[in-house]
Design a protein around this nucleic acid. Structure first.
Lengths: 215, 215
DNA sequence: CACATGCTCATTGCATGCAATGCATGCAGA
DNA sequence: TCTGCATGCATTGCATGCAATGAGCATGTG
């Protein structure tokens, strides 16, 4: 079971920025650091490569570094999938399959996200924001979409780590979260899908200036 | 490099139905069959598991067998992604970024798909149909979407292998392919997205009777 | 006769040795 | 000084040994 724990720990290290994009990862080095043999590290590398966090087949794996265009492509797929999950969640709400507690939960996540970001706790804000979006995907009750989104969120998180941007957009983000929330609560699939798509694409546009790649 | 070839060969065997859904795959057995050691087989297993073709954590991997609901969930994600690729392809056409030869190619794929299916060459029809959809995804020029769709197509192909159904729907399928093609050719993203979504969801509905799972 | 329990064996997970490969570095010659 | 080549090294890919674990089966008992 060391393979799985190794995979998890490595993923955390990458998502934390401990291994920033472009870092080179060697089997021996990581095996030594984590105190396991090369085999589980090797398999963890494969898994993370499949998840789109590592790349560079052959000699030397590196943490993926997406350029602006690739990041935009990831965002477009994310927008399509989040439009789907929002639509499905709204459908389930309309069908009466969502418990009030679940919606309350979602509202609280939106609140906490806004508060954390407004208070300047950027790391917590990023985490809560992701939790908010993920909760919607859970309410959609489609594991396939959820899994695909998990991968995309990981990729985006890695590539936008350094640009933990200031809150200027905080108000807009929160307003869009509320709009999405309202559409789901109202059981309006079309509105929910549209709100989700717009929100994600706006976020993409806001992240784009992160094209200050050097090194 | 035996890992990669092993992965490819195993994928082919699974997609061909040589290892039908539910089959149990053992490292030693496959290693013996393919004439390699357990290590590359092991890694190929991991990769195919990540691709959603194998499952069954822990003791004994099996070829995934999706029930009707899971298959429908895959189809909904596929519909969202194919709507996106159709939209992107149409956008590129509108922007004049698609060469006429590329569209001609696509038309020919639609033709050949229709002919093969109408002639009762089901296997060839399935292959060509997939090639048609894939070509659209290629024209969308979004590798992220293309990769995600490749995985979904694989999963669907495995789970609908046994129900290589008769052509009754042939006419409808071809008509929808033409509608999609026309929307892309016309550079109409909304129409293309709608056509793709409807086509995929109709296909899902047609595949649903495959719920005659026993064994 | 059914169910629980203990045993045996197949199968996987992990570690490590060995061979191959690609890269960097340093030296020699132009 | 620059270029080309050769050599050494770091690193990965693959094979295999060993230990652990879970499953299936047989047997004994209620």
């Amino acid at each position: 079971m060391q393979t799985e724990t190794t995979r998890r720990r490595l993923r955390e290290l990458i998502l934390d920025g401990h291994y920033p994009p472009g870092s080179r990862l060697g089997e021996v080095e990581v095996a030594g650091t984590l105190g396991v043999s090369r085999t589980p590290v090797r398999e963890a590398f494969r898994a993370l490569t499949a998840d789109g966090l590592l790349a560079g087949s052959g000699r030397g794996l590196r943490v993926v570094r997406l350029d602006a265009e690739e990041l935009a492509q990831v965002y477009r797929v994310r927008a399509a999938l989040e439009a789907l999950t929002a639509e499905l969640a709204a459908e389930r709400q309309r069908a009466g399959r969502l418990a009030p507690a679940e919606l309350a939960d979602l509202t609280e996540l939106a609140d906490r996200t806004h508060r954390a970001t407004a208070d300047g706790e950027l790391a917590a804000g990023v985490r809560l924001n992701r939790a908010f979006h993920r909760r919607i995907a859970e309410l959609a009750a489609n594991p396939v979409a959820l899994h695909a989104l998990d991968r995309l969120w990981d990729q985006i998180q890695v590539s936008t780590l350094r640009s933990l941007r200031a809150p200027a957009r905080t108000g807009l983000v929160d307003a869009q979260h509320r709009a999405l929330l309202d559409a789901i609560t109202a059981g309006d699939p079309e509105a929910a899908a549209a709100a989700a798509r717009r929100h994600v694409l706006d976020t993409c546009a806001a992240d784009r200036p992160a094209a200050d790649d050097k090194e």
